[in-house]
């Protein structure tokens, strides 16, 4: 997270003010987004640099971070359903990391208070890989992982 963004977070009292204003149509959303998108974090290839770019946390393995509606085998790597729930009190964000993807970080969800710490989405996986769910809560990081096998599936395009 760059400094700009951190300031924006602060001035928004935990919310991204820039994004808030953008979505409300008060400022140019494109400008807001380039400011808020953490480009460094989306260009990393290993866990250490990814964690560093995300705020330099040292995640501990946690059974309070749980995958749901996430298959063991994906018939097609282009669309792999992922569901993550955190039972860690004060969860602020949930990130999805795919170890063997060209870039490790797939998505980061920031959840203000009042939003349930649970999300589902779909990601691409280049190959069979460990997938990590990284949760930030109270300044600490918690993590769990799951291997998802990817089969390329048949002909028929």
């Amino acid at each position: 997270m760059d400094r700009h963004r951190r300031q924006a977070l602060k001035s928004g009292g935990g919310l991204s003010l820039v994004a808030l204003l953008a979505a409300a149509g008060w400022i140019d959303p494109a400008a807001a987004a380039t400011e808020a998108w953490n480009s460094a974090a989306f260009q990393t290839h290993d866990m250490d640099t990814t964690l560093k770019a995300l705020g330099d946390g040292k995640p501990v393995p946690s059974t309070n971070v749980v995958f749901f509606s996430t298959p063991d085998i994906a018939e097609n790597g282009a669309v792999v359903p992922i569901g993550i729930t955190s039972k860690v009190p004060g969860t602020e964000s949930i990130a999805i990391l795919v170890a063997k993807n060209p870039n490790m970080l797939a998505a980061l969800f920031e959840l203000p208070p009042g939003t349930e710490p649970s999300i589902t989405t779909r990601v691409k996986m280049r190959e069979t890989s460990d997938v990590y769910a990284l949760v930030k809560a109270g300044g600490n990081y918690y993590m769990t992982s799951k291997e998802i096998k990817v089969t390329l599936g048949g002909c028929g395009g």
Partner: peptide
């Protein structure tokens, strides 16, 4: 078990 996992995948979608 592979078949079951694939069925699970289809359901998750």
């Amino acid at each position: 078990s592979v078949e079951k996992a694939i069925e699970q995948y289809r359901q998750d979608l």
